[in-house]
């Protein structure tokens, strides 16, 4: 089965020398959710923009349903956009403030030759009260607005939805409703999803597979359960150990990795994490480490994995 989306050796440099994406490759199968996690500067949002071709990459290839869309013009891309959709983080900013909800829902149908009457069905599908159709975005809550964005995304039965931090600006209880809706939609339609987030718990909940980004490079990828249970790359271990589970009875196992993410300008030739990594070897600075297999489907870009000396020792439980 061909991947819905295949990203091959993608590189993106912004004017000014910021290398946001650094040789990234991954593929998403139909019906699959790939979680893309990373902290600020990891390039995760840029990857989202590149995957939907709202941005053109510096190098590399983007294949959507087997078709190379890397260099397609805006006009050629337009019909494809019916099947390649995106939902952004900020629900308040993602909808034209001068259009009613009804018109906003009709727009994708109008653009791709759909039946405008389906707008009401879309509203019902995302459990949006029909009374909101005549309202303007500022009259709706954040959760309702995000439902509008999702309804717009699914209007033309897409094959892939890129979700860029879709629940990060929503309250906890509202967030759960949106995640549930996304899960239902995937079950019903088999749509594939690229779920971009910094929220580890949410990514774990919604993703089948996860890729961890650090400074524009994928340092580890694997099935969600395996990656969260036995993270291989020292950065993944650090990231997971810094997470605060919302449960006082789960003890924190903190790795004392110090420092912050360096700026993505003038990146070193070797492993980007080597400067902060307690396990770094001289060889880590020589060149970008290759992916090493860890477990079925799980691999990480760390030299230490070859002889299994990649485990960070947890510091004492600070609580």
């Amino acid at each position: 089965m061909t991947a819905v989306l295949a990203i091959q050796n993608l590189v993106h440099r912004f004017p000014g020398g910021v290398q946001a994406v650094n040789d990234v490759s991954f593929a998403i199968a139909p019906g699959e959710t790939l979680g893309l996690v990373g902290e600020s500067g990891s390039g995760k949002s840029t990857i989202g923009l590149l995957a939907t071709r709202l941005l053109a990459p510096t190098q590399g290839r983007i294949l959507f349903e087997g078709q190379d869309i890397t260099r397609l013009s805006a006009a050629t891309l337009r019909p494809l956009r019916a099947r390649l959709q995106v939902v952004f983080q900020d629900p308040w900013g993602a909808l034209n403030p001068r259009m009613t909800i009804g018109r906003l829902l009709e727009e994708p149908l109008r653009l791709h030759g759909g039946n405008l009457a389906e707008a009401r069905l879309l509203a019902e599908r995302v459990r949006l009260p029909l009374a909101t159709l005549g309202r303007y975005p500022h009259e709706l809550s954040g959760g309702q607005l995000q439902r509008v964005s999702i309804a717009r995304a699914i209007a033309n039965r897409p094959k892939l939805i890129v979700l860029d931090e879709p629940t990060s600006s929503l309250d906890l209880s509202v967030r759960a409703g949106i995640l549930q809706l996304l899960e239902e939609l995937q079950r019903e339609t088999g749509v594939a999803m690229l779920f971009i987030s910094h929220d580890l718990e949410t990514v774990r909940l919604v993703s089948h597979r996860v890729a961890v980004l650090y400074l524009g490079r994928i340092v580890e990828t694997g099935p969600a359960a395996a990656l969260f249970e036995t993270p291989g790359h020292p950065y993944t271990q650090t990231l997971l150990s810094a997470h605060l589970p919302p449960d006082p009875f789960v003890a924190l196992r903190r790795h004392r990795v110090q420092g912050e993410i360096p700026s993505p300008i003038n990146l070193p030739p070797g492993c980007f994490f080597a400067g902060r990594c307690p396990l770094a070897l001289p060889a880590c600075n020589a060149g970008p480490p290759a992916m090493q297999p860890l477990a079925p489907g799980q691999e990480a870009a760390c030299l230490r994995i070859a002889d299994r000396t990649n485990r960070l020792e947890p510091a004492e439980d600070p609580a």
Binding site: R175, E201, L205
Partner: peptide, 18 residues
């Protein structure tokens, strides 16, 4: 609130309607 956290959702399923 507690049941809306992803960890609890994974255990209990979707119980919360915001």
């Amino acid at each position: 609130l507690i049941d809306s956290t992803p960890g609890r959702i994974a255990q209990l399923g979707w119980t919360v309607t915001g």
